[in-house]
Design a protein around this nucleic acid. Structure first.
Lengths: 132, 132
DNA sequence: ATGTAGTTTATAATGATTCTAAATAAAGTG
DNA sequence: CACTTTATTTAGAATCATTATAAACTACAT
């Protein structure tokens, strides 16, 4: 199984739960955005097994730390994650409360001219809020 | 008092609490970022009176709706607000958990090339995460 | 097989935010 | 001014996402 390797190589034990979560997250061409609750629903539907909510949180955070998931900075009561970890930005449709990917080509290069001593830029994220 | 007018003109009754909160937020040259809890502390210090937490929430949301405050999109367990409502961006220092203003000139023009039918761009915000 | 270190789990705890309903205060009316 | 109406404040309760806890379980090395 492909995910066993991937997990082991990241120093994460390939448990049944982690492999199932991998399948839900990564067995698809399209990347997608999700909240923890949405992910829990997907897992239930796809695998017909119940993974503890705590495990879902743990796993998502572990995957984020390893760079397999990204948090999307947005003001919402729930945290949004993205399976698309490439450098890219987002539209946020305020009415639908839906995120839409913006490819880097849709935005053009961004040049942050100011530097802060002793600090490195880790990420640059644009959120474009949309209204109707 | 200047804030009485401002409030009345926005359709908000100029109550003692709202005026005090205005003083804490706007009686300063520098704009600043805050969470609700930080604001509550500031109010206590500056006015020596206690305003109910619920009122602080209500007022901040009312002011946001009127455009006197902006929410800053960031992943944190607390919501950050900004008294600087002009178009600008932010550094977020991950270690210090501190926001730093980025002037528009520090970033250069941003051109969102993609359009979504029937939607207008309401805001474009960049978050630059900093690590040490 | 056996030990150990990492994981999972149900449940409890935390903490920011929102809700509720009663008390209070501002504005409007005669 | 009285008096009514309507908005606002308030303490405390409720909600809800997330994190902590600690016991049971499991992958893996020896």
């Amino acid at each position: 199984m492909k995910y066993r390797e991937k997990l082991r190589n990241s120093g994460l034990r390939p448990t049944k739960q982690r492999i199932q979560i991998c399948e839900v997250l990564f067995d698809t061409d399209k990347t997608f955005h999700f909240t923890i609750n949405e992910l829990e629903q997907k897992i239930k539907k796809k695998t017909n097994t119940k993974i503890s909510l705590a495990t879902v949180y743990n796993t998502v955070h572990a995957f984020e730390k390893k760079g397999y998931l990204k948090q999307i900075p947005i003001n919402s009561n729930q945290t949004y994650f993205d399976t698309n970890v490439s450098d890219h930005h987002h539209f946020y449709d305020l009415k639908e409360e839906k995120l839409i990917d913006l490819e880097n080509a849709d935005v053009g290069p961004i040049n942050i001219k100011r530097k802060i001593d002793g600090k490195k830029i880790k990420s640059v994220e644009i959120l474009v809020r949309l209204e109707s």
